[in-house]
Amino acid sequence: MGPLEERMMLSGMHTVANIFCCCCGQNESAHEKDQKYKEGKFVLER
């Protein structure tokens, strides 16, 4: 997991962190151009 940072998203300001595979270091990649902003990100809610 990368460092925590504040980012403005469509639903408001959120604290987020980029995540990646601990074995190979790669992020998930999007196949559609309009979904590229989601690469390497997951939403976890409590």
Rank of each mutant, 00 (worst) to 15 (best):
E6T: 15
F20K: 13
C22F: 13
C22A: 14
M8N: 12
E28Y: 13
K33Y: 06
H14T: 03
R7F: 01
D34T: 12
L44R: 09
M8W: 05
H14K: 15
F20L: 04
G25P: 09
A30E: 05
K36I: 15
F20S: 12
R7C: 11
K41D: 00
L44T: 04
P3H: 08
R46I: 01
L44Y: 08
Q35V: 02
G40I: 08
C24W: 06
D34Y: 15
L44E: 06
E5H: 11
L4M: 10
K41Y: 14
L44K: 07
L10Q: 10
G2W: 04
M9A: 06
A17M: 13
K33C: 01
F42R: 06
M9W: 02
H31V: 06
F20M: 08
C23I: 13
N18W: 02
M9V: 02
G40C: 07
A30Y: 01
E28P: 00
L44N: 05
M1S: 11
C21V: 05
S11Y: 09
S29Q: 14
K36M: 11
H31Y: 12
E5T: 11
L44I: 15
E39C: 05
C24I: 09
L4H: 11
K36S: 06
L10T: 09
Y37E: 10
D34Q: 14
K41E: 04
K38S: 08
R46C: 00
M9Y: 02
P3R: 11
R46S: 03
G25H: 10
H31K: 12
Q35G: 00
M1H: 03
R46T: 02
V16H: 01
Q35F: 10
H31N: 10
M1Q: 06
K33T: 11
M1I: 11
L10I: 05
V16E: 05
V43G: 01
G40S: 07
V16M: 10
C24V: 08
E39M: 03
E28K: 10
L10N: 11
M8P: 01
S29K: 15
V43S: 09
P3V: 02
H14V: 10
G12C: 08
P3F: 05
E28S: 15
A17S: 12
R7D: 09
L44P: 00
M1W: 02
L10C: 02
H14G: 00
L4K: 12
Q26K: 15
E45T: 13
N27G: 00
K38C: 09
E39Y: 03
H14D: 03
G40R: 03
S11N: 11
N27Q: 13
I19D: 02
S11M: 12
E32Y: 04
N27W: 04
R46H: 07
N18T: 10
V43I: 11
E32I: 03
F42Y: 06
H31M: 07
V16S: 04
K33V: 11
K38R: 14
I19S: 02
M8Y: 06
E6V: 14
P3C: 01
R46N: 05
N27F: 07
V16G: 00
V43Q: 08
C22E: 15
G25K: 08
H31S: 11
E45Q: 12
H31W: 10
E39D: 15
C24T: 05
K41F: 14
S29P: 00
G2F: 03
E45D: 11
E28R: 11
T15A: 05
C24N: 05
